[in-house]
Design a protein around this nucleic acid. Structure first.
Length: 500
RNA sequence: GGCCAGUUCGUCUAGGGGUUAGGACGCGUCCCUUUCACGGAUGAAACACGGGUUCGAUUCCCGUACCGGCUACCA
């Protein structure tokens, strides 16, 4: 039974890279009829941010990657929040000391800083631990006394020299680390909390995790993790590892960071994050009008491709196509243009009624009172020319409220007082014409223009200007029909009044 | 600096000992369209470099360069 977990830290808004990690975990779980769990890794009390946990859960719900187990989703192997599992880690850390695979260390942070300053490339391991304050160097009774006196201590992993640790990675193949170059990682901190390394191994073991799918930044410490599984005697059930390439900045160097959103004018979070200050507040893909399914499709293909030339994949197609073999080994730059293209594609292929449901929040926010049916109709008129959900009510505002202003340049080019009588006649013709349907109206008006000698190039443009105020938008007669006879005539009259 | 991993158009990628090195985004041109788009066609655009191995290397091996990650009582 495949069991995977997504294990974010609640240190702020969930990064888009985290969403992709969750997605790959989800795809792998579903492909194998396994379980997808959510575990909150809040072992660093200093970095804990209130609200981050809810944000993570809401994000997963928005994109539709619902955990089968985990915080907020039930399950028998909880609790699924690490701060609620403190005692468990305490026990396992001390067990590891008892069997000789870990030891107590009493060096203060200041002392360690001094070591780092004095020794180039200082590493707390076989090469230095003999000269430091720990239960390997101190007499046993002294250690007991310090412990009894409540002196601050950490528990470190005791790494034996002269070994080669083989890590088998599903994406990268075999990676070998030399134990002499590894440091004796802190497993249990002076504040009574475990570090990532300890908590992760203990939880993955206790929660029967079969595959660890996480970011590439964890590859170097995987050797420690393997040693930990061995130390605990759990190597036979050790999960398999898959280290994902990172998502890089659109340009420049390094991985995508939260500041890149403002820098490149795009969201880097699934949902907006309301911070204390404007600098700490971030926009989200949801609020920017992206469809979760489009975002998932975009994210899935950022660092993975099943081969062939297909670009648009439904979630089910992603699930059946997913395989670690095709995940690339190098980072992928975040391409916002491509994200927009996916969104546009999904919008084009979506039924009008469905779009109406999605743009309802945006219509409500703009204060438009409009029926589902009418909203769907307007959505149909705009969907070929928008990229995001909020474009419907911003770029296409004139479908929902009167024209705010007219494209001055175009008006100057097409309108002058001599056109007034003809435009009035055109208005009268339209007002009386029946049926008020796009094709019929178009044929009739064009015929009228032909007979009266009104230049279509001018009057079709003026019609458009009167109805939309801009030269960009749906076909004129489609628009007129959707607006209805009364509103169309009202707009023509208003134009006549405003244009002079 | 050390350790680990990587390198095909600007970007995401397909491919793989002999190919006109394919697709997508973006960009250019044309067609469709009395708007803007959609759509269609088309163009520019890539195998990091140096050594091997081989009849032949973009593909395999080694090195260099570059890129990325790690190097915390953060995850």
């Amino acid at each position: 039974m495949v069991r995977v977990r997504f294990a974010p830290s609640p240190t702020g808004a969930l990064h888009i890279g985290g969403v992709r990690t969750a997605l790959y975990n989800y795809l792998f779980a579903k492909k194998n009829n396994g379980k997808f769990l959510l575990r909150i890794e809040d072992t660093d009390q200093n970095r804990y941010v209130p609200g981050a946990e809810d944000y993570i859960i809401e994000s997963l719900k928005w994109v539709g990657l619902l955990p089968d187990e985990g915080l907020g989703f039930g399950g028998d192997l909880g609790p699924y929040r690490q701060s609620d599992r403190k005692e468990i880690y305490h026990k396992y850390a001390h067990d590891l000391v008892a069997v000789g695979h870990a030891y107590f260390a009493f060096d203060t942070p200041e002392e360690l800083d001094a070591q780092r300053a004095a020794i180039e490339n200082f590493t707390y391991n076989i090469s230095t631990r003999g000269n430091l304050k720990n239960s390997l160097t101190l007499p046993e009774n002294e250690v007991s006394e310090m412990l009894a006196a409540g002196k601050p201590f950490v528990i470190r992993l005791k790494i034996e020299p002269g070994q080669e640790i083989l890590v088998r990675d599903l994406i990268r193949g075999e990676v070998i680390f030399k134990s002499d170059e590894l440091d004796d990682k802190v497993l249990f901190k002076a504040d009574g909390m475990p570090t990532y390394h300890l908590a992760n191994i203990v939880d993955d073991h206790l929660m029967d995790i079969t595959h660890v799918i996480r970011g590439e930044e964890w590859l170097p410490s995987t050797a420690h993790h393997v040693l930990l599984y061995r130390g605990f005697g759990w190597e036979s059930t050790m999960p398999q590892f898959a280290h994902l390439p990172l998502i890089l900045k659109p340009e420049g160097s390094g991985k995508l960071s939260k500041r890149d959103g403002a820098k490149f004018g795009m969201p880097v979070f699934p949902l907006s994050w309301p911070g204390e200050t404007p600098e700490e507040s971030f926009p989200g893909f949801r609020e920017a009008g992206f469809l979760p399914e489009a975002m998932l499709n975009f994210l899935a293909l950022l660092g993975w491709h099943p081969g062939g030339e297909q670009e648009i994949f439904s979630l089910d197609e992603l699930i059946s196509a997913f395989d670690f073999k095709e995940i690339s080994k190098h980072g992928a730059r975040f391409d916002f243009d491509k994200a927009k293209w996916f969104n546009q594609k999904y919008l084009q292929n979506m039924p009008n009624e469905e779009i109406a449901l999605r743009i309802r929040p945006f219509a409500d926010a703009a204060g438009y009172e409009i029926s589902d049916e009418k909203l769907a109709k307007m959505a149909g008129l705009m969907k070929e020319r928008v990229t995001t959900l909020n474009d419907f009510t911003t770029q296409g505002y004139f479908l929902f409220e009167p024209v705010r202003d007219y494209d001055a340049e175009m008006l100057a080019k097409k309108w002058d007082a001599t056109k007034r009588p003809v435009f009035e006649n055109l208005k009268n013709f339209i007002e009386k014409y029946d049926p008020f349907t796009p094709a019929e109206l178009e044929a009739a008006v064009k015929n009228w223009m032909h007979e009266t000698g009104a230049k279509p190039g001018d009057f079709l443009s003026l019609l458009r200007l009167a109805l939309a105020g801009t030269m960009k938008g749906p076909a004129v007669f489609e628009m007129a029909a959707a607006l209805g006879r009364a509103e169309t005539v009202a707009r023509l009259e208003k134009a006549l009044e405003k244009w002079g």
